[in-house]
């Protein structure tokens, strides 16, 4: 395995009952790469990124992240998870903590960072996502876009190497999508490894190093944004792209 490879996934399978969600996924992702995952709903793209931090377990195949194999060993799983941050479609902030507490909670309890350090780091991150003035509010008082930016800051507070985004803008009103995408674009340019499941073609064109197209639990096609958007090879990709570009 190349030193520069951070995620290596070989013939990964997963079933939900009879439904074959992941049907032999093979992919290698390099450090600092920005990968955008496209595909129709039910194609397994969300399930795929959820297997990367063990929110779903794969049933067959091999998954190696940062030179550690994802197995049943809790030590391995925790070592892998500590390198991965995740941003969800529905934000999933903790409603009973303030914005600041949401961000400092995990560093303080999981990483055992001092309160002061966690606080300073959180304020720094809030500045980075542009909402340091909301630090003492509760998530319920923020707009969707602001909540998602807090969620991004919360994941970044754990200093992960990889960030997973599971349709981060799908639950947002159109006028709030941009503020979240701007934060993600800034992240993409900061040399962090990003895996983004999204339908935002503009974002994909602007920052993706690679587009991966999923259908029926397989990777149908992958390549640079120019290749995929300008001359897709597979019929499925063409059909999907024409559908989302129309809307």
């Amino acid at each position: 395995m190349d030193d520069n490879t951070i995620i290596k996934c070989t013939d990964m399978h997963k079933w939900f009952g009879d439904f074959h969600v992941l049907n032999g996924i093979d992919i290698e992702i390099k450090r600092g790469e920005v990968v955008v995952i496209l595909g129709p709903s039910g194609s397994g793209k969300s399930t795929f990124i959820r297997t990367l931090n063990n929110l779903e377990e794969h049933q067959k195949g091999k998954l190696i992240i940062n030179n550690i194999e994802m197995s049943h060993s809790i030590k391995n799983i925790n070592a892998i998870k500590s390198e991965i941050g995740m941003v969800f479609q529905s934000f999933n902030l903790f409603p009973h903590y303030t914005v600041l507490q949401n961000i400092t909670l995990a560093p303080i309890w999981v990483k055992k960072v001092s309160k002061k350090e966690a606080h300073d780091n959180a304020m720094e991150l809030l500045r980075r996502v542009g909402i340091e003035d909301q630090a003492d509010k509760y998530p319920g008082q923020l707009s969707g876009g602001q909540q998602q930016r807090v969620a991004i800051a919360r994941s970044l507070a754990m200093k992960p190497e990889i960030m997973l985004f599971d349709e981060p803008t799908s639950a947002l009103d159109p006028e709030m999508i941009k503020e979240v995408l701007d934060v993600m674009i800034e992240l993409a340019r900061s040399n962090m490894t990003l895996l983004v499941v999204t339908h935002e073609i503009g974002f994909a064109k602007a920052v993706a190093d690679r587009i991966v197209f999923f259908d029926s639990g397989r990777i149908i096609e992958q390549g640079s944004p120019e290749d995929i958007f300008n001359n897709p090879k597979e019929e499925r990709t063409k059909l999907f792209l024409s559908q989302i570009l129309e809307s």
């Binding site: 063990n54 929110l55 941050g85 969800f88 999933n92 909670l105 309890w109 999981v110 994941s155």
Partner: peptide, 19 residues
Amino acid sequence: TQYEAAYAMNFSSFQSMVL
């Protein structure tokens, strides 16, 4: 999703329960 967020943040199951 609250459990998932707590799990993704690497809280132990005890911490995620109590906090």
